[in-house]
Design a binder for these strands. Structure first.
Length: 574
DNA sequence: GTAGGGTTAG
């Protein structure tokens, strides 16, 4: 039996694997289910194997044993169609051969990858019925599956009901909360973990770092970094990469660069990519491109993510020619392009008003343009009031079934700018007929060690009345500087007055107003938004920075905006 | 005797 293991591990390609199978068959060993199971497992999972071939062999087994089922389930869970594992799982349940804990583990893994919440629930029921629910590993898998399917309530419940937990159980939930848009709860859970006697490891801090990155929690960021150093967890390059990313996303690109320069472990390609992206976040095109050059000199070939980061940096700095050169270099260096590279180029050219060239890029691309790419082009069409382009692009978006509120708003704005009110009304009707999706905007701000979250029109903050009074004062004062609200950014069937209100209570404005009333004069205000900052907020915050003599930093989904003395560091490149 | 938790991206 040992020799089968040894030979399997030496197989580097499919033909060798088939030779081994031929050998096992001719010597009669393939009838021994243990050999067959090992073979199936390896064949389904290894890069030398072939998943379809594994399925083929499996189907020819008249009555497979549990470990043979498990091998094939493990393979399907890792394949491109993990949901197929459910079919196999059901067949297995109906066969004389009963599932064991591993069967459930692989099936749950498949559920997690397929984002299948309902199926996770069903397998969970089986886990209980089969009496496996005391299994720590299986429960951790359950936490992970529920988290990935977006059901953090169930994930929490599985965690709470565990009598024995190990560090992986904690890690699964911390990572789940961090990735499930509940970064504050992830930090709280980490604090709770530190209060006990369990020792956090690399995986734990990766979840925590991710939570800090999302929150832009620069105070917390320093604390977590100190903790990592004290526990020597920064010997792991993966942890260092996440620290660099966190500092960059928390507005501390200088500290990110310090970590990059002072690493004790070897930098990987991801390290370089993260740092280049870090500079791109600030619109620092020169630093990003210099690093991109140095990366090649250091013997690390840029990959498609490196190019994307560099092009993105050009994008945020308005460096059109440099971006186009990088885009062309990719073909020469044999680096493959994906829809994000095309999307970024469309953005770069679109912002520069070169809409025809942007459209040519779309037409020339071998992959199908996605919704985001068309939205980018629609945004550029709006900026340059190009009605024809906006119409073509909107049609594409409708064909693709996009029901995003912003698409309708942009098109209607293009029409409104031309005074084509009939068309505005038509778009509005079309919008009503659909189930239009709107991702809720939210902004975070840290004051006195607490991170506050604001939603649009939010009145949940204990000082909400003061915040709204401050906003009213702001609006009065900035009107003296000629501010007129861009009411057509809002597209609801409401009167002009409410339109203005909806705009002026955007989450980023609420957060800035709260910053103004709760922090000392002349100190810097940092706000973090989950979506892109809106045009009106951008204008308003520029004026606030001037009138109230405050430096205001807003991190939005794509980059940092540093407002000072009435201007923004982005120079209107978003 | 094959299981669980993880870094970069328009």
């Amino acid at each position: 039996m040992a020799y089968v293991d040894s030979l399997l591990s030496k197989c580097t390609c499919f033909s060798q694997l088939k030779q081994l199978q031929a050998h096992l068959i001719t010597t009669g060993s393939f009838q021994f289910y243990t050999h067959r199971a090992k073979f199936l497992d390896f064949c389904a999972v290894s890069s030398a194997g072939d998943f379809h071939y594994a399925v083929h062999i499996f189907r020819n087994i008249s009555s497979p044993y549990t470990n043979e089922w498990n091998g094939i389930l493990r393979g399907i869970a890792q394949s491109n169609n993990p949901i197929n594992a459910l079919t196999f799982y059901v067949s297995m349940s109906r066969s004389p051969c009963k599932p064991d804990a591993l069967t459930c583990s692989f099936t749950l893994k498949a559920c997690a990858r397929a984002l299948a919440r309902h199926e996770t629930l069903q397998v969970h029921a089986h886990v209980i019925r089969f009496g496996f629910d005391a299994d720590v590993l299986l429960r951790t898998t359950l936490i992970d599956a529920y988290s990935k399917c977006g059901d953090l309530g169930c994930a929490y419940q599985v965690f709470d009901e565990m009598c024995v937990r190990d560090i992986a159980s904690w890690n699964a939930l911390i990572a789940g909360l961090a990735q499930g848009n509940r970064p504050n709860d992830a930090l709280l859970l980490f604090k709770k973990l530190r209060g006990g006697n369990m020792e956090p490891n690399e995986v734990t801090v990766l979840g925590v770092l991710s939570a800090c990155s999302q929150l832009g929690a620069n105070r917390e960021a320093g604390i977590v970094h100190e903790y990592i150093k004290s526990k020597n967890l920064d010997r792991s390059v993966i942890v260092c990469n996440a620290v660099i990313d966190m500092y960059a996303k928390c507005g501390l690109v200088g500290r990110a660069y310090d970590v990059f320069n002072e690493m004790k472990c070897l930098r990987t390609r991801v390290t370089w990519n993260t740092m280049i992206m870090g500079f791109a976040l600030y619109g620092d095109g020169a630093e990003a491109l210099e690093l991109f050059e140095r990366m090649g000199q250091a013997g690390i070939e840029p990959d498609s993510v490196s190019y994307l980061a560099a092009i993105c940096a050009c994008n945020h700095a308005g460096m059109v020619e440099e971006g186009m050169k990088l885009f062309d270099d990719m073909d020469r260096c044999g680096v493959s392009k994906n829809v994000k590279h095309y999307g970024s180029m469309v953005d770069l050219l679109g912002r520069a008003g070169r809409l025809d060239e942007a459209f040519k890029i779309v037409q020339s691309m071998p992959t199908v343009p996605d919704v985001v790419l068309w939205q980018t082009l629609l945004g550029a069409s709006k900026t340059y009031s190009n009605v024809e382009m906006a119409e073509i692009v909107s049609k594409k978006l409708v064909e693709m079934g996009s029901n995003h509120c912003g698409d309708f708003v942009l098109l209607s704005n293009v029409y409104a700018a031309q005074g084509r009110w009939h068309d505005v009304r038509r778009v509005r009707e079309a919008m009503k007929g659909q189930d239009v999706k709107k991702v809720p905007g939210c902004s975070y701000i840290e004051v006195g060690g607490t991170i506050y979250k604001f939603m649009n029109g939010d009145q949940n903050h204990p000082r909400w009345k003061e915040i709204y009074w401050k906003l009213d004062e702001i609006l009065l004062r900035i009107r003296e500087y000629g501010y007129v609200p861009e009411t057509n950014n809002v597209f609801h069937d409401i009167g002009p007055e409410e339109k203005e209100n909806a705009l002026c209570y955007h989450s980023e404005k609420l957060a800035v107003a709260f910053g103004l009333i709760s922090t000392p004069d002349r100190t810097c205000i940092s706000v973090n938004k989950n979506l892109r900052i809106c045009g009106d907020c951008h204008v308003v915050i520029k004026l606030i920075s001037k009138i109230y003599e405050r430096e205001i930093i807003v991190r939005d989904r794509t980059r940092f905006h540093r407002f000072k003395g009435g201007a923004c560091s982005c120079k209107e490149y978003w």
